[in-house]
Each structure stands twice: as C-alpha cells, then as structure tokens.
Computed example of a mutant assay.
Amino acid sequence: MEHLLFVVLCWGVGGFINGIAGFGAALIAMPLVTTMVPLRLAVPSCTILGVTLCFQMAWTYRQHIDFERLKPVYIGTIPGAIIGITMMQKFPAHYLKLGMGIFLFIYAVWGLFFEGKKQKVIHKGWGVVAGFCSTAISSSIGMGGPPTIVYTSLAGWTKDAVKAGIASYFIVSGILVILLQTYAGIQTKETVMLFAAAAPAVMIGARLGVMVSTKIGEFTYRKVLFGMLAVMSCVILRSAVTQLIALA
C-alpha cells in the first residue's frame, strides 16, 4: 500500500511538471517509480499514463492545435520508422543515446543562456526532419521525444501551441506503442491496474500545472522548457555512460 501511494505521488508531481512545460511527466516520475515497481510493470503503465496525459493536454489546448503546422512532422514518421529499425540492427544503442544526449545538452545550454529575448524561427521543412528523427530514435532506442520538442521550440509557436503540438504528436506515437505492447503481451492486468491507480493523480497534477503555466510569460516558459531539456539530456547521457561502462 505504501508503495502504491508513493507511485501515485510521483505521478502527481510528474503531471504537475508536465502541465507547466508540456512534457516531462515520465522524466520526473519514472526514475522514482522504478525504485519501488519492477520495470515490467512501470514501463507499460507509463505508456498508458503518457497517452492519457497527452489527451488531457490536447483537450486543454485544443484551440491551439494546428494540424497543418504538424503535417511536416507526421510526413517524416514513416521513413523514420524504417530507418530506426535499421539503426537498431546496425548501431549500438548507447552510441545513439550518447550523441542525442550531447546534442540536447548543448541546445539546452544555448537556450538557457544565449538565446536572448528574440526567439529564433526555423523553416517548417525542419518538421519533416524532426518527425523522421523522433520516429527513428523511438524505433531504435525508445527515446524519440527530443527532436519533436526541439522543433516545436524553434518553430515560432506560442507556449500553448507548443504544448498542443507536443501532445498531438505523442498521442499518435503513444497509441502505436500501446498496440504493439498489447500484441506482445507486455500490457497486462497488473499494468492496467497500476495505470488506473496513478491516472487521477497525474491528471490532477497536470491541471494544477496548467493553472500555474497561465501565470508564466512566453520568455519565462521558454527558460522552463530549456531547463527541462537540460534535465532530459542528463538522463539520456547517464543511461549512455552507464551502458558504456558496463561494456568496458
């Protein structure tokens, strides 16, 4: 019972951070949850919680969803999946993680300290690259979020549009993962029960985070976003270095 309450609390905090930044619930909750819950239960339940949270965020920011702007991201997903499977077979996962972690860390540091108040805007064609890379990385090492998040942060969108875009994209990718997990027998009665226990907390936490976010201006929000990307890069780098040490 104590373990379950701990899991619920972790996901509540994760949902709160997600409500503010638009992502990061699993980044906050999973390292803590896995100290109490086996990975075979924590990971599948996390997938369902993530999709549920994205549906909530998409509904909250539904007026800011622009599928025309998201189209380039979706275009890149199919070839990305094909290349991702190839990368999984050809390249060691730890080197892919290391490269992504280094890039993400450099980008986060630039955003935190050197971007300035005038936001840089890139061409929408980079959305195809982002969708390609996100799906390729997801197919190979399961950490495909950063490219899409980086793209939305450079596309000239408002904070609410960024959140809507991130949520919309991950609904599609998350549902695909859940279907594959179910087919493989990874989703079980236990994972669904764990999801059911944590879902109210993560949704309430997200709602509170959204309320806090309304008090945050565009410039401050971008610093929060870059800060979360910095944390994400450190998590990815830690995973890569741990694998490299184990192989040494």
Score class of each variant (00 low, 15 high):
residue 218 E to V: 07
residue 217 G to R: 14
residue 240 A to Y: 00
residue 204 I to K: 03
residue 43 V to D: 00
residue 99 G to R: 03
residue 83 I to N: 12
residue 120 K to H: 12
residue 67 F to D: 07
residue 104 L to E: 06
residue 17 I to Q: 03
residue 6 F to I: 10
residue 52 T to M: 13
residue 192 V to D: 00
residue 219 F to E: 13
residue 13 V to L: 10
residue 173 S to Y: 03
residue 174 G to W: 05
residue 229 L to D: 01
residue 211 M to V: 13
residue 146 P to M: 08
residue 13 V to R: 03
residue 37 V to Q: 01
residue 196 A to C: 13
residue 201 A to Q: 06
residue 141 I to K: 01
residue 133 C to E: 04
residue 94 H to P: 08
residue 44 P to L: 01
residue 82 I to T: 09
residue 158 T to I: 07
residue 160 D to G: 07
residue 93 A to S: 15
residue 106 I to V: 15
residue 103 F to Q: 04
residue 169 Y to L: 12
residue 136 A to P: 06
residue 144 G to A: 07
residue 78 I to D: 07
residue 15 G to A: 09
residue 213 S to N: 14
residue 14 G to P: 07
residue 239 S to K: 14
residue 165 G to V: 03
residue 13 V to C: 07
residue 222 R to T: 03
residue 97 K to F: 14
residue 133 C to K: 05
residue 187 Q to P: 05
residue 83 I to Y: 14
residue 33 V to I: 08
residue 99 G to P: 05
residue 215 K to P: 13
residue 45 S to M: 03
residue 201 A to K: 01
residue 198 A to K: 02
residue 106 I to Y: 14
residue 212 V to P: 00
residue 234 C to G: 15
residue 131 G to I: 00
residue 74 Y to Q: 02
residue 176 L to S: 13
residue 160 D to P: 08
residue 51 V to Y: 04
residue 245 I to M: 15
residue 60 T to H: 14
residue 24 G to K: 00
residue 245 I to W: 13
residue 18 N to Q: 15
residue 244 L to A: 09
residue 58 A to M: 06
residue 52 T to W: 06
residue 112 L to I: 07
residue 133 C to P: 02
residue 120 K to W: 09
residue 122 I to W: 08
residue 92 P to K: 10
residue 233 S to A: 13
residue 102 I to Q: 08
residue 218 E to F: 05
residue 25 A to W: 09
residue 84 G to D: 02
residue 95 Y to G: 05
residue 178 I to C: 08
residue 229 L to S: 06
residue 233 S to I: 00
residue 233 S to G: 02
residue 64 H to Q: 15
residue 181 Q to G: 07
residue 158 T to V: 05
residue 26 A to M: 12
residue 5 L to Y: 15
residue 7 V to T: 05
residue 186 I to V: 13
residue 163 K to E: 00
residue 169 Y to T: 09
residue 77 T to P: 03
residue 159 K to N: 06
residue 86 T to K: 14
residue 48 I to A: 12
residue 163 K to Y: 02
residue 3 H to I: 12
residue 189 K to A: 14
residue 236 I to N: 02
residue 62 R to Y: 02
residue 29 A to H: 00
residue 44 P to S: 04
residue 229 L to R: 03
residue 69 R to V: 06
residue 60 T to P: 08
residue 185 G to S: 11
residue 196 A to G: 10
residue 238 R to W: 11
residue 46 C to D: 10
residue 147 P to Q: 02
residue 101 G to L: 00
residue 148 T to D: 05
residue 38 P to Y: 04
residue 132 F to L: 08
residue 38 P to H: 07
residue 31 P to Q: 05
residue 82 I to F: 14
residue 211 M to T: 11
residue 91 F to D: 05
residue 235 V to D: 12
residue 174 G to Q: 06
residue 195 F to S: 09
residue 53 L to M: 03
residue 199 A to G: 06
residue 111 G to R: 04
residue 185 G to H: 10
residue 215 K to M: 14
residue 127 G to T: 02
